[in-house]
Design a protein around this nucleic acid. Structure first.
Length: 826
RNA sequence: GCCGGGAUGGCGGAAUUGGCAGACGCGUCAGACUCAAAAUCUGAUGGGCUUUCAGCUCUUGUGGGUUCAAGUCCCACUCCCGGCACCA
């Protein structure tokens, strides 16, 4: 490999390895990325999602940093005061799991991974303001994570409850709903179990509406991310109807979105876990059977029970409710398909107009009544094979009969509210955020349990609750901190009697839900973030990261920001104004991962071609928002291109070409300015680096077909060389710096300003017009760009080729698109 | 089932939003350099047909439609990717 490299460099392709290390040190010394946060220059906060510190980065990771770096460098050249910080999401399971195998403490492995990762980032030539580095595992950071917990606690937004929670037996901890993907642990793919445990939650449901409504404010977020969040929050509007229970005073509340079908509700169904059930069935003959059914359902796996093709099973309670609109007695059933934790845990069933109810009713022979007429064919209960779920006119619906079902929705809801039958209400799919983790490598939850005072928050002055280092962190299903007596035993902050600390740690998504605030004052010992600085610099102007965080991190960060906003600690309520989610780098059809063995390391490629080539190929591989298949060989093209740029720029003042000169100076000048325009527009828009780069390639290709003949040509070539160097700088910073200095410029190219195009140079006095006959291209014509339509028509009709196509035919119409095309209709 | 995004040469992908489809790059082929190879450089490169320094014709997942003109707009459909889903 090294022989190869020497050879390449000897042949004078371009001495990338020397150049790259030299300019990397230069940026360091010159503090190119260090920001004066107080400056009056227009600010630009460019943020890449901070990574979990892993030992070896692959080219897929690189895409994220390279895109972020290209944006930051471009904005620098546009004259912005650019804040581009980096930090590490440094708590979490991988370090702890590795420690179990290697016996190296997570703190040690994490900190050494961070150092390695910084080296790798530097090797890529991505620049950050390292003076602002944060690592979530350090006490000066997690102190403030704990502080945020306390703020939520004070507001009643952090609370402890016993609940059925997701349990990963491999990770030996509970998981948030957001961390369960297809019934499996997001991290290790282990099938998730359900456990009843007492755990800490953040009340994100209080913010469901705001989180949903404010998606409208996020104009520059990808639609798919907003859609995912919308789906996840899952708001549905309906009416909670109180069904009186026959022979009893109490009522059964049922949430429905189809209040228009109420007259067809012929039975109601409760979740077997519903608290009213035991009372309902206490005197019923079939009690034993019913209880057996409840036991059976409870024993069923929650996941299986919820799966769609799971058999719907139920049992009659022997009791009846009253349909409040028809006053009929309707049976009360229990069924496995009704979820206790959604809505009211009790549903009204309308088998004629809900397919699921229909199947259940058929199975157990429950009564049907059509209340919406199908305009296409009359519905007969006895002949129906499926529910009719479309629109129509109400029938058998008392005073509402004859009205459209949609308009009746509101009329019936109004009627119910007036008569105390039901109330409009809203339900969400979103559940509260479970933040407790029974693992070691995380921020301790700052709570103390006292036998007399109960759960007492650790006073702010006593933060941080330091994570002890001497711990046996074998996962046992309980927090390892439990076994550390020094940590566990404390005095109650209220009454000074003996007390115990909370031993669970926080979900690492709590750490990452506020880090973007910390970068403005990373070393401040007195507060989590600086009010003035944060409100000056945020919201983040450009956030860049993987779409896998569409729900988890992005929803949690929005939530925490809104809470802090409501506490008057932030003046903004959305943290990230613009979001860009880059696609994944794929290898052999799959996401790169160690377990699949398809990881591509950038090291050999950097060794062979240099970091600039890796960067250029990464940006050129395709539209950055889409997934892209990595192909080492295709990177050759990027290297060749840099070689061409190198030769052109270093020789531009004495430029000779081998082949035929196909370009004229006027056209080359125009192309230069078109290219500046195109690249600028691509970078200002949706970061279409791939097309920006191809435009620069076209310009360089043109230069290789241009022969210098005069002093003006020489000046033009120098102009092209200078501008090309500037245009490629955000993509390939090392070689650009080198060329910039070889062109005789002082200082960093990133202190120079971005080129602007000259509108006059874009104008042409001659244009090539496409001549179509009946929409097919038959000829081309070079004409003055200011030619009149009349002259153009005459010119085109006189063309020999055109004549052969229109000969003897009647011309019906001539369509002219100025400076582009003529279409003759015959 | 609902929502979002897609489908363009051998491959990755362009196409100024209705105006020359296939830019740019990879690969392939040919040539230069070389004893030779690699690397590098130069050129050609969607398919078919013909009378081949030219020209015709077909071609953007499928089938219809609108238009002087459709990858782009409309209707119907197929397949792929992602999210949600016994959610009442």
């Amino acid at each position: 490999m090294s022989d190869n490299k020497n050879e390449t460099q000897q042949e004078g392709i371009y001495p990338f390895s020397e150049i790259e290390s030299r300019w990397q040190s230069f940026w360091d010394q010159e503090k190119i990325f260090e920001v004066d946060a107080l400056s009056d220059k227009p600010k630009f906060y460019c943020l890449v999602m901070f990574p979990y510190p892993s030992a070896a980065l692959h080219v897929g990771h690189g895409r994220n940093y390279i895109i972020g770096d290209a944006v930051a460098r471009y904005k620098l050249m546009r004259g912005f005061n650019v804040l581009s910080p980096m930090g590490f999401d440094a708590f979490g399971l991988p370090a702890e799991n590795a420690a179990l195998k290697t016996n190296i403490h997570p703190k040690i492995s994490t900190l050494s991974n961070i150092e390695r990762m910084k080296k790798q980032l530097n090797q890529w030539g991505v620049g950050y303001d390292w003076s602002r580095e944060v690592a979530s595992c350090l006490p000066n950071y997690y102190k403030w994570t704990q502080w945020i917990f306390l703020k939520l606690y004070e507001k009643g937004l952090a609370y402890k409850k016993k609940a059925a929670v997701n349990w990963c037996s491999s990770c030996q901890t509970v998981l948030a709903n957001e961390q369960v993907v297809n019934d499996a642990c997001e991290r290790c793919d282990t099938h998730v179990e359900t456990k009843e445990l007492e755990q800490w939650f953040f009340k994100i449901t209080d913010y469901a509406d705001k989180l949903l409504d404010d998606l409208k404010l996020l104009e520059n977020w990808p639609d798919r991310v907003k859609t995912m969040q919308r789906n996840w929050i899952g708001r549905s509007e309906g009416v909670t109807i109180e069904f009186p229970i026959a022979d009893e005073e109490s009522k059964l509340p049922c949430f429905t979105t189809r209040v228009d079908t109420i007259h067809g509700a012929t039975y109601v169904v409760l979740a077997p876990e519903h608290p009213l059930v035991s009372n309902l069935i206490k005197d019923v003959d079939e009690k034993e059977n019913i209880e057996a059914f409840i036991r059976k359902v409870r024993a069923e796996d929650r996941i299986e029970r919820m799966s769609e093709d799971g058999e719907k099973e139920g049992v009659f309670t022997g009791r009846y409710a009253i349909n409040p609109m028809t006053q009929e007695k309707i049976p009360i059933w229990l069924a496995n398909y009704v979820l206790f934790d959604y809505g009211t845990g009790c549903v009204m069933a309308v088998p004629t107009h809900d397919q699921r109810d229909f199947l259940f009713a058929k199975k157990y022979n429950l009564p049907l009544r059509v209340v919406i007429d199908n305009p296409k064919e009359a519905l007969k209960e006895s002949e129906m094979t499926e529910a009719y779920e479309d629109e129509g006119v109400l029938v058998e619906s008392g005073a509402f009969t004859g009205k459209g079902n949609q308009e009746s929705w509101n009329l019936i809801a109004d009627f119910m509210e007036r008569n105390d039958i039901g109330k409009r209400s809203i339900n969400y799919r979103l559940k509260d955020w479970l933040i407790s983790r029974q693992r070691y490598w995380g921020a301790p939850i700052p709570i103390i349990y006292c036998d007399t005072c109960g759960a007492v928050p650790v006073p702010e002055s006593e933060l941080p609750v330091v994570l002890p280092e001497e711990v046996e962190f074998k996962p046992t299903g309980k927090s390892p901190l439990q076994d550390n007596a020094d940590f566990l035993n404390v005095k109650c902050p209220k009454c000074q009697s003996d007390a115990r600390r909370e031993v669970d740690t926080m979900d690492t998504f709590v750490d990452s839900s506020w880090y973007y605030l910390r970068y403005l004052s990373p070393n401040d010992e007195t507060k989590a973030f600086d009010f003035d600085l944060v409100n000056k610099w945020l919201p983040v102007d450009q956030y860049i990261g993987g779409v896998e965080h569409a729900i988890l991190h992005l929803l949690y960060s929005r939530f925490i920001t809104k809470v802090l906003h409501d506490l008057d600690l932030l003046s903004f309520s959305e943290p990230f104004k613009n979001l860009f989610t880059q696609g994944m780098i794929i290898k052999d059809g799959a996401k790169m991962s160690k377990s699949k063995g398809n990881v591509v390391s950038p090291d050999p490629l950097i060794e062979k071609y240099g970091a600039d080539t890796v960067r250029l190929y990464t940006l050129f591989i395709g539209p950055p928002e889409k997934d892209a298949e990595w192909n080492d060989r295709a990177a050759d093209g990027s290297f060749r291109f840099l070689g061409r740029v190198w030769r052109f720029v270093t020789q531009s003042s004495d430029w000779k070409i081998a082949g035929e000169a196909k370009w004229k100076s006027k056209d080359l000048k125009r192309l230069l300015h078109q290219t500046i325009k195109k690249v600028t527009e691509d970078l200002e828009g949706d970061f279409h680096f791939n097309t920006a780069i191809s435009a620069i390639m076209e310009l360089i290709n043109a230069c290789f077909q241009f022969q210098q003949q005069s002093e003006e040509d020489k000046a033009l070539l120098n102009e092209v060389a200078l501008n090309v160097t500037l245009l490629i700088a955000p993509f390939v910073p090392h070689v650009s710096e080198e060329l910039w200095s070889r062109l005789g410029n002082e200082g960093s190219i990133f202190r120079a300003s971005w080129p602007s195009f000259d509108a006059d140079s874009l104008k042409t006095d001659e244009v090539e017009i496409v001549v179509q006959v009946l929409g097919k291209v038959r000829a081309r014509a070079c004409v003055p760009s200011d030619i009149s339509e009349e002259d153009l028509k005459k010119y085109v009709l006189a063309d020999e080729k055109v004549k052969t196509w229109i000969d003897g035919k009647e011309i019906r119409k001539i369509i002219i698109v100025p400076n582009k095309l003529v279409n003759i209709v015959v």
